[in-house]
Structure formats: structure tokens, C-alpha cells
Amino acid sequence: MTTLDATTGQAAPSGWAAGLKDRLQQLLAFASLIVIFGFFSVASSSFFTYGNVTNILFSTVVIGTLALGTTFVIITGGIDLSIGTGMALCAVMSGVFITNMGIAVPLGVLLTLLFGGLIGLVNGFNVSVLRLPPFIATLAMMLVAQGLALVISHSAPIYFTKDPGYVKISTGSIFGVNFPNAVLVLLVAVVVSVVLLNKTILGRYTYSIGSNEEATALSGINVRRWKIVIYTLAGLFIGLAGVMISARLGSAQPATGMGYELQAIAAVVIGGTSLAGGKGSVVGTVIGALIISVLNNGLQIMSIPQEWQNVVLGLVILVAVYADMIRKKEA
């Protein structure tokens, strides 16, 4: 509850009355999260346990990180399809830096983040200087990244066996108790995103561009430059996700990644961010990502086959977006 209150104070692009309406979708998403959570707790005794809740959070990390960066892009009215395979490419690069080149883990992680930023920079350049539609620019990047990941790794996983410290980024627990570091990383990423989106000039322009790109440009803002910045930021999150997934697996898997972008976009949309741009929040995205994890986890615990999980997820997206449209019509 505290997290939500914190954002209600911060999601300040609109006035009080309008703000309340905006928050309704978030509240709705939050309420559905509680309902789904409650349902599984009743349905299965092994669902609401410390171990399983931690497990849910742990499994939210990768999708959550990707979804955070994408939230910025989607609020500008854009889209980023390259985050899934871009993440796989970053994971491979992390393996190249740390295992193949023997670079120390902290520096290797930093380089991986920067590599992700580079992917985003290229996307941003293509979208804002070459003026390609974001869908096309990032679709192309999705394929390029997928191919490069395989080429660079010779289609084989890269293991981090020499550097046990790397794996600890994800599965270790600095607090001693059984609470994975990955969740802490996600928390920090969430806080950074909330601050960026709500407290900085970057966030201000992110909303402005999505709200009305041409009016923003005519107001004297260098929209092109800021779009590059925003895509680059999303790229840094791709790099972070690459580190988190390879640390969790203890290896860089070049063939993974495809499909993560859609799950991340689903999380953003369930969280009430409009694909038309101008509206959205980080907390909404976090709730959206949690709904996806809770559903996957709960359905698994209830021994419902994997195939059905996607069916349910698809229906949840339909309901969430439809509810959002109804709300907008009433407003």
C-alpha cells in the first residue's frame, strides 16, 4: 500500500480531479492484483507462503526491468520491440566481457549496461533522426539483435563458472535472509524510474511528447534529442535485464529473449499506460508485471498446463485494456 500512496503523490501530470481519474486504472489494476492473489491463496495452500511470494517477486525481475524502460517509450507514444532479443544480446555481451575477456565483474556489468544503452541509442536515432516509425525501427533492431546474439556466441551458451560473484547479483542475498538480490535490484530500478518520470525534466518531456508531440516542438523543446535520450534510457534497462537474466541462469543463452518484449509491453498496458501516449505510470507497470507473475505462478501451482497460462494472460490483457477504454469514455 505504501508504494501506491507514494506514487499517488508523485503522478502529478494532471490536476486533482483528473489525477484521481487517472489513478482509477492503477487502483483497478491494483485491486485485480489483490483479487487474483486472494483467489490463489484460497485455491492452493502452497501459494501464500514466504518462499512462494519471494519466488513470484524473483520471477518478476526480468519482465519488470524490461517493462520499466518500455514505459518511458510507450508514454512518448512509441513502442520498443527490440527489448527481448536486445536483452539476449546484452546477456551474450556480458558473457563476452566477463568470461571470454576476463574483465572484472563490476566493470563487465557496467559495460553491459552501456551496450544496452547503445542499442537504445540506435533505436532513438532511427526513430527521431531518420523518422522511421518506432514499430519498424525496433522490429528491425529485434531481428538484428537476435542474429547478433547467435553470431557472437557461435550459437552456444556462455557460462559464468569462473565468476561465482556474477551469479550472486541475482540469487545471492546481501541481507543474509533468504531474499534474493535480484528483487532488490528491481526495487532500486523502480525507485529510479519513479524519480526520473515524476521528478525530472526527462519525465516532464516524456509526458509532453506523448501528449502532443508537435505542440511540444512548437513550444521550443528539442523533441528529436529528447526522444533519443528516452530510447537510450530504455536501452540501459535492456542492458540491466540482460545482466539479471544471465546472472539468474549462470549463463548467457543467446537463443532466448524472443517473446519477452510482448510480456513486457503487456505489463505496461495492464498497468494503465496508454499506447497512444501521454499517460502512464511506473507503479502501474510494476503492478502489471506482478499480475503476470502471479498468474503464471498461481496457475503453475494449481497444475494448470503452461499452454493455458498464455490463454489466461491474453484474456487479462483484453479485459484490462477494455476497462481502460470504458473508463476513458466515461471521463
Binding site: G15, T200, I201, R204, Y207, S208, S211, K279
Partner: peptide
Amino acid sequence: LLLEQDVASNIAISSVAERFTTFGFV
């Protein structure tokens, strides 16, 4: 105008970077 945004944001949009921002924070 940014119709969906509030009056203050609209008034400040052109000058927010130079007048209402310190180290990137609004």
C-alpha cells in the same frame, strides 16, 4: 497546448529546463 496536462505544466513547458530545473530535477 497539451490539453490533457494541467495549466502549470502548459505554462512552464517552454521554460521548465532553464527556470525550474536544478541538476535535471524539476
